[in-house]
């Protein structure tokens, strides 16, 4: 009983781990440009394959945690993560049936949408220049890292959650 409860929290655990990891300080310049959006990868994966364990509340809280750690406007990431899982939930059946090859461009597209929404929200308060190297770097890094992270998530999913109804 307790073990199955702990296991059902695994998606939340991986999502918050992603938030912490993507905001970590590493002493390499490439990390500040090619920083993958691990949060969106985890959210999309769990929303597609375990929507019962990854609902809007989890997306909202992970977004708030991301806002606090990254120093962004409180609520901005929360809103974009919510919109992301709403989009993913809407096209869930079609996305689950899609080939694995579509994963990197799909995630790059979602990150692009998320960053664009951030820019729109920020522009409501002040004029913000778009830093294209960082914008495109995040897209590219997410697309490149996505297959590896998804493989890991599939492995954990099969190991811990396959027999959990």
């Amino acid at each position: 009983m307790t073990l199955s409860m702990v296991r059902s929290w695994m998606p939340a655990g991986t999502i918050f781990l992603a938030v912490v990891l993507q905001n970590i300080a590493l002493p390499w310049y490439f990390w500040s440009v090619f920083r993958p959006d691990l949060l969106i990868i985890c959210l999309v994966y769990w929303r597609l394959y375990r929507p019962d364990l990854c609902g809007p509340t989890l997306a909202f809280l992970s977004g708030i945690a991301n806002d606090v750690l990254s120093g962004m406007l409180l609520g901005m990431s929360a809103a974009t993560q919510l919109l992301t899982i709403m989009v993913v939930g809407h096209f869930g059946t079609r996305l689950r049936a899609a080939d694995f090859l579509f994963l990197p461009p799909l995630l790059a597209l979602l990150v692009g949408l998320e960053e664009s929404l951030h820019w729109v929200f920020m522009s409501l308060f002040q004029s913000v220049p778009v830093l294209w190297p960082l914008f495109l770097g995040r897209l590219l890094a997410t697309a490149l890292v996505a297959p590896i992270v998804v493989r890991l998530l599939i492995r954990w999913h099969r190991l811990w959650l396959d027999d959990l109804a």
Binding site: N23, A25, W31, L69, G71, M72, L134
Partner: peptide, 15 residues
């Protein structure tokens, strides 16, 4: 010690 760095297109904050 700097433990967090959120170099994104919209914020430059260190933890």
């Amino acid at each position: 010690r700097v433990v967090g760095d959120s170099s994104s297109a919209f914020a430059r904050v260190l933890a």
